[in-house]
Amino acid sequence: MSTFEPVWGPLIAGYLFLAGLGAGAFVFAFLLQKSAPHAFKIRRFAHILSPIAVVCGLVLLLIDATGALHNPLKLILLFSNDQSVMTWGVYFLIVFLIISVTVMVIDLKKNYLIPRFLSVLGVILSFCVALYTGVLLGVCNTFPLWNNALLPPFFLMSALSAGGASLLLYGALFAPEELSEVAALKKLQLPLAVIELLFLAALLIITSHNSSAGAASIAMLVAGTWSPWFWIGLVLCGLLLPIIADARSLIFSAKAHTESAALRYTDIGINVLALGGGFLLRFLIVMAAVPLAIAT
């Protein structure tokens, strides 16, 4: 088998992560409207973060696409091929950005009443953006690690969890007084992380059985080049530690939670880890994809 150099790398992984993060933050801002009407600071942060994260992701994408850097006018052509998942993504991202920037402006003008249709439309687009990042990779039938129906919902879960973690991190750092208000958001983090862990296990088991290239991908993750990143970075720090911490604060009453400095620092640490895990997930899936052998 010839050695294969991944075509896409950290820049694309960063884009996939930031697009998901922005989409997830928007969804959580919507949830906070009802469940935590007084968490103004956290909600405003979510409204600012969602378009900015997506734009930062798009900048990474542009840095990777050198042809467009040489001649930015070419970007207009991105709307050409309606069969390309990337073109679908461009449409989703543009509509998402229009909505999220509008919502951000409304919020920044101290107007806390975001028009309902705008929020709902934004949430739908958030789902589209988060899911499309999985479909983008999923349609490449060359790579068994990507070419499966699990990737879009997996990326969606991870996007929601990263969006939530970023808001909780902001809350723990800059708006601790609002943390008790957003307890419902915090409770969501546990099931999201558990679902991610289950998806990851399913992806590993099924992909390793689908072809020798699939098995080679999984071997790279669990026992090869990427195994330290996979086990320590993604599984332990990105998923298990947040799950343990979230479960712990769910079991023991979260009453003293805002007062205790130690718990606050735990919160900060756990959410940083969860965000790191979200990036690592994309990074490892992009890097560990092994193509199917063609000339056997």
């Binding site: 042809g67 467009a68 052509l77 050409s80 490449c140 039938n141």
Partner: peptide, 18 residues
């Protein structure tokens, strides 16, 4: 068509033969 290519490398990823 190099005049249209933005260098996104999606085709390189999609080519089953690399």
């Amino acid at each position: 068509d190099h005049g249209k290519c933005i260098g996104c490398k999606y085709c390189m990823v999609a080519c089953p033969y690399q």
